[in-house]
Design a protein around this nucleic acid. Structure first.
Lengths: 240, 240
DNA sequence: CGATTAGTTGAGCCCGTTCAACCATCGTGG
DNA sequence: CCACGATGGTTGAACGGGCTCAACTAATCG
């Protein structure tokens, strides 16, 4: 149990919650946590569940506690692009705007801790540090979005796949510290979703993964489980 | 002269500054403006000037007062991607991070109002509304970045060019209100830069512009001046 | 078992790239 | 004044990476 954060008087729900450590709730005092937790709901959503719909008003925000959420945009003729992935303890929502311009969907089974937008916006006024945390989170999302713009605009299919696997490894592998040489993880996305993320087709994704497998850069079991023995070899193919 | 914003005691520099109306400085009281303006420098940079260099520490932030700034990322082998364009009165800088992961360059002649990062970070603590403005600005940038991810990943060359021209028209045309049927503007980017923005080559950009010209969707004078008589016809080709 | 869904593999095609020639504009110096 | 090179843009021809279309395999579930 960490000592640096006071745990007395904190709602039971929050005590072991990652959002209180690395997420936005870390900005809140125990009193504020108690107040917020009154309107807080913790729930699970199975893979595929739509969490936020395009151009529908959003009345709740949420912290991602586990699992992966994908943010997608769709053109009128059905072409889709995944514009972001969120992992615990990311904040899910677009403050200061009544309707969402994108769709959020559970990519894997997901645990959320949600609260009304009003509750959050009220808390932000009395606790500026909350807004600060939110700003930092959104700045990170912006950095990530821009990294993917480079991949989408300028990388080859092979580089896109390598970059994607690296990114997932860093976010998912339970204990992948900065100095790990190997990694293993479950892919949170299907081939179709990877294609929508990288601006490719299912077939190209499949072929490139097969290629990496053939060159012994990765091993794949049951389609979803990926093992990277030498992360450096994978990184060398990411292009940057 | 607007009545809704108090102008007595405001530094001369700031009186007619757009950043005070629609930009981040709007959060500041006249006292705070006076304090900030002591360490403020207003300056011009000609097109091509590098404003922020990749992985170099950034000691100043700035407001864009006029002109266009492009944000680029470069892969190790020289491939480039423009990951954002900034117009007045956008805020230029990445708070809470010592070094920049991208390069900012004047795309056209640019006027900036810059200030030390410390001055801004200090002011943010005493004036939470400043951080709020910054958050809103960054949220807009994030929305834009995601819109371009869709273009980069899923739109055809023709659609990319149409989307790009539309975006520029909305940002540059002096008086393009929401209900304008026509627009005219100077392109702030060269063909090469447009290519780097859209993930295309110079030749493809050129060909697509020629095509739009041939179909009388746009007129082009002197390579840079674009006239759109019917914005709807252009929008119909943007794909979304 | 067949039915369904997810992934792989193959063959051919097409959009955008590559490579190259050409054109327009502009500033410079003989 | 024109010749000159430099820069930025256009245009053409051929190539190729990734897409399309289609057949096939694997895993899951009734």
């Amino acid at each position: 149990m960490r000592e640096d954060i006071h745990t007395t008087g904190i709602p039971a729900l929050c005590v072991s919650c990652e959002a209180r450590h690395r997420g936005v709730c870390g900005a809140l005092s125990s009193d504020q946590l108690v107040a917020l937790s009154k309107s807080t709901k913790r729930h699970k959503a199975e893979a595929g569940k739509e969490l936020v719909s395009d151009s529908r008003s959003v009345e709740r925000f949420a912290n991602v506690l586990s699992g992966v959420v994908k943010l997608t945009k769709t053109l009128s003729d059905g072409r889709q692009q995944i514009v972001g992935l969120q992992f615990a303890p990311d904040f899910l929502g677009r403050p200061f705007q009544a309707e969402s311009s994108l769709t959020a969907e559970a990519a894997t089974e997901v645990e959320l801790c949600s609260f009304p937008r009003q509750a959050l916006e009220r808390l932000m006024k009395e606790q500026p540090d909350l807004e600060h945390r939110l700003l930092e989170q959104k700045l990170r999302e912006l950095d990530q979005a821009r990294d993917w713009m480079v991949a989408l605009g300028r990388k080859t299919a092979a580089e896109k796949i390598a970059s994607f696997l690296l990114m997932i490894a860093r976010n998912i592998d339970p204990a992948a510290g900065p100095e790990r040489r190997s990694a293993a993880f479950e892919l949170p996305l299907s081939r179709a979703e990877i294609a929508d993320f990288l601006g490719l087709t299912i077939e190209t994704v499949s072929r490139q993964i097969t290629r990496l497998r053939g060159e012994n850069v990765i091993r794949v079991e049951n389609n979803r489980h990926v093992i990277v023995d030498d992360i450096g070899r994978l990184a060398a193919r990411a292009g940057d």
